[in-house]
């Protein structure tokens, strides 16, 4: 048995023990679905970052950085972190205020419409399944490469772990195991990236070496490597901007992100958490970026770029650090899988079954069957982690993001408008993704499914709302949402929360200075 397999098994046992301990304390539906709405800031920050950082960061994003898209990837990453600030202030607080168990339930309550709730449920479950599939394939690929065990068996083993944690301990267990896993992969990435750069001769030496690579011209230029994704720098930057919007939407409105807000102990926790989450995600992307770029010093022609950090763990880093990093990467995948699965179960029980009794049992049964279906899909289809992951993000941006914000900010939007917008965005994004693939053509970056999906959503929402009238129930539901609860009016809490939000401006300054010192100055030298 190799050392990596031992590390993975130990981590699996720890997660299972934590799942059992927490599961025994889960008594009510409130505990199971929303962790009793008592989660402190640490658990919200840990769980949101862990849900965001799936194997996609360590496999997908690392490959893009390694292949020469440093600048477009940093544009994407920094654009997306803003989604946490907007998501918390303009959507998450209201979600918690509505006291619902699922986001489709929120839409149904806000618009007094079962049709809107059903559509949101269907799109939500499709998004989750798409994401769960991507994560399962990522976990299977990673585990198989590092342990030598068959890919399908790896998927089965990891599935047993995350299905058990989720079914047994619900949202409460997911929040805690997510936070443990977040600590593990964050610590591992900080140490690993420092050692990768140090062993490569320091960051300045890395920059000097990689900028002279003949096979990756412009790897650190403002437009990235023009021989990789698009043949022009402008197009590469445009790609970063488009996917920046996609992932910003995911961070703002993605169900596996915004659902955490329903579990926070109060609205101040939601707002304050967003600052730490934004900083944490920026830092993790930056560390992944500099570590992956630095790997070009060791080998610039690695045949499978998506496994470059696995290669680093096994060949470059000291064994113990490699074991911790790989266990951390696996933890990132499992933490995302637990979140997706718990949301699928919650939606099946609360939005489809909708009974008053035995909802936890229904939720557990649906989690079990969905995980079996996704496992079969993951085993029978070739791994396409990044493609599937980006497709899931596109559905969120096109179908949900405009609806989430319109439901809070717009007085004129109606249930018909929301329904038409969601549907048009969803179908538009599917067609723009599937038809070009079927015809074997590639569309220009400005006709990306996200752009078309969001545009169709907004147009359909506008037309649908213009042709119908806002009902008194919809007016009342929105006004109720906009009233700040008495429990949130403590002047001291408000003062501190406002200070946190002002610190976002400081975060912008920190990001600019970091980019100047890490990127601009070294490449100008």
């Amino acid at each position: 048995m190799n050392i990596y397999l031992i590390g993975i098994f130990i981590s699996f046992i720890i997660y299972l023990i934590v799942g059992v301990v927490i599961g025994r304390k889960v008594k009510t539906a409130n505990d199971f679905y929303v962790a009793g709405r008592r989660a402190p800031m640490l658990l919200i920050v840990g769980s949101m970052i862990a849900s965001y950082v799936s194997t996609g960061l360590f496999l997908g994003d690392a490959a893009e950085f390694y292949n020469g898209l440093f600048s477009p990837m940093m544009i994407l990453s920094i654009m997306q972190v803003v989604g946490y600030i907007y998501g918390a202030i303009f959507f998450g607080r209201y979600l918690r205020r509505s006291e619902v168990y699922t986001i489709p339930e929120f839409f149904g309550k806000r618009f007094h419409s079962e049709a809107v709730r059903k559509l949101a449920t269907i799109t939500s479950i499709i998004m989750m399944i798409v994401y769960l599939l991507s994560v399962m394939q990522g976990i299977g690929t990673l585990m198989s490469v590092i342990t030598g065990i068959d890919y399908k068996l790896c998927i089965l083993l990891s599935l047993i772990v995350f299905v058990f944690i989720t079914m047994f301990s619900g949202a409460k267990g997911v929040l805690i195991t997510d936070t443990i896993m977040f600590s593990l992969f964050t610590g591992a990435l900080v140490i690993a990236s420092f050692l990768i750069i140090k062993n490569a001769g320091g960051w300045n030496h890395v920059v000097e070496t990689v900028t002279q690579l003949a096979d990756k011209p412009g790897i650190l230029d403002w437009g990235g490597n023009t021989e990789y994704l698009y043949p022009s720098k402008v197009m590469n930057v445009f790609w970063g901007l488009i996917y920046g919007v996609v992932w910003m939407s995911v961070c703002m409105a993605g169900p596996w992100q915004s659902s955490r807000y329903m579990m926070a102990k109060n609205e101040h926790t939601i707002i304050r958490s967003s600052l730490y989450i934004a900083f944490g995600v920026f830092l993790l992307e930056l560390l992944t970026g500099v570590a992956s770029v630095s790997m070009n010093v060791y080998t610039s022609t690695y045949a499978e770029p998506s496994k470059i950090l696995i290669y680093a763990s096994m060949e470059v880093l000291p064994t113990i650090v490699g074991v911790i990093l790989l266990t951390g990467v696996l933890a990132a995948g499992i933490s995302s899988a637990t979140t997706f699965l718990s949301l699928i179960g919650s939606s099946c029980a609360n939005d489809i079954y909708k009974g008053k009794r035995n909802t936890i049992t229904i939720s557990r049964i649906s989690m079990f069957f969905v995980s079996i279906i996704v496992m079969i899909l993951a085993m029978t289809n070739p791994p396409q982690i990044r493609v599937i992951l980006y497709f899931g993000g596109t559905i969120v941006a096109a179908s949900w993001m405009p609806a989430c914000f319109a439901s809070i900010l717009s007085k004129r939007v109606t249930k018909t408008g929301i329904f038409c917008g969601m549907l048009a965005g969803f179908i538009g994004c599917f067609i723009m993704k599937l038809v070009p693939d079927a015809l074997g053509i590639s569309l220009p970056v400005y006709l990306d499914p996200t752009v078309v999906g969001i545009a169709l959503n907004l147009i359909a929402m506008f037309i649908g709302s213009a042709l119908t009238k806002v009902t008194p129930e919809e007016v009342e539901a929105r006004q109720k949402l906009l009233v700040v609860p008495e429990s949130e009016k403590n002047p001291h809490d408000i003062k501190i929360t406002k200070r946190y939000v002002r610190c976002t401006v400081l975060l912008g300054l920190i990001i600019t200075l970091t980019m100047i010192f890490v990127w601009v100055i070294p490449i100008w030298r």
């Binding site: 920094i78 610190c503 975060l507 200075l513 980019m515």
Partner: peptide, 30 residues
């Protein structure tokens, strides 16, 4: 160009803080 991108990204984040702050102030000071 690299400098412009770095500054723009910082401003993008700062803008979120300003808009968020204005929205919160409006709601809390009602």
């Amino acid at each position: 160009m690299e400098l412009i991108i770095s500054i723009s990204l910082g401003l993008w984040v700062a803008l979120a803080g300003i808009l968020g702050y204005l929205h919160l102030r409006k709601e809390y000071d009602k």
